[in-house]
């Protein structure tokens, strides 16, 4: 079940094979939903669920899918899962669902999910595919949460809605929130910084 090979599938997307910082996939939503920590977390969770179960289901029926129409089949599965996730979010965390707005629906077009199904689930057994899906979803989520943490802290001075900087009394000494952090361009720069840090620590990742 949890052999070394399977564990590698699960954990390598956290670092050396991260979907955002190494494969550069799913950037669009990473820039759009990370202005606050809470939506970033919910988004990370949703994508993990969809990636994991889409990989599992496709892997279960992989031998029955005619290869010429496989994209359509994959999309049907992903879309069904996304609608489920969307309904759950609307039922239980309505305010976050409002904030995420169109980006929940756009999980369907998230390259990570399609990429993992095409690259992995179509050719592997269900259990490794499931782990691979979870791993990539979490790897995506880690970056989202790092981004959300810094963007909310520096841009709005809060964390999960709690006014951290105000409690610390930073505003009294002249600190001002950085409005650029709220804007998507700064999120792109932050992703770039994360990539920079990761590659200067792990030289193998630098492309020749």
């Amino acid at each position: 079940m949890f052999s070394a090979k399977n564990m590698k599938l699960l954990t390598s997307p956290f670092g050396v094979n991260n979907p955002i910082t190494v494969q550069i996939l799913g950037i669009c939503s990473a820039l759009a939903v990370t202005a606050k920590l809470k939506p970033a977390f919910v988004m990370a969770l949703s994508v993990t669920v969809v990636t994991a179960f889409a990989s599992l289901i496709i892997s279960l029926i992989r031998n029955g899918i005619p290869s010429r129409i496989r994209i359509i089949v994959q999309l049907v599965v992903i879309a069904a899962l996304v609608i489920l996730v969307d309904q759950v979010l609307k039922a239980y965390v309505y305010d976050v669902s409002k904030q995420l707005s169109v980006f929940v629906g756009l999980i369907i077009t998230n390259c990570i999910i399609m990429g993992r199904i095409e690259a992995f689930a179509l050719g592997n057994k269900p259990w490794p595919s499931f782990l691979d899906g979870i791993g990539n979803g979490v790897g995506y989520g880690i970056i989202l949460i790092i981004l959300g943490f810094f963007r909310e802290l520096l841009g709005a001075g809060t964390l999960w809605g709690y006014p951290v900087l105000e409690k610390l009394g930073l505003y009294h000494v002249g600190y001002v929130n950085n409005g650029l952090m709220i804007l998507p361009p700064m999120a792109l720069i932050c992703v770039g910084l994360i990539i920079w840090i990761q590659r200067s620590r792990n030289k193998n990742l630098i492309e020749k």
Partner: peptide, 10 residues
Amino acid sequence: AFIFFAYTPY
């Protein structure tokens, strides 16, 4: 530009 977008009122 950084100050303009980050700390607009200033």
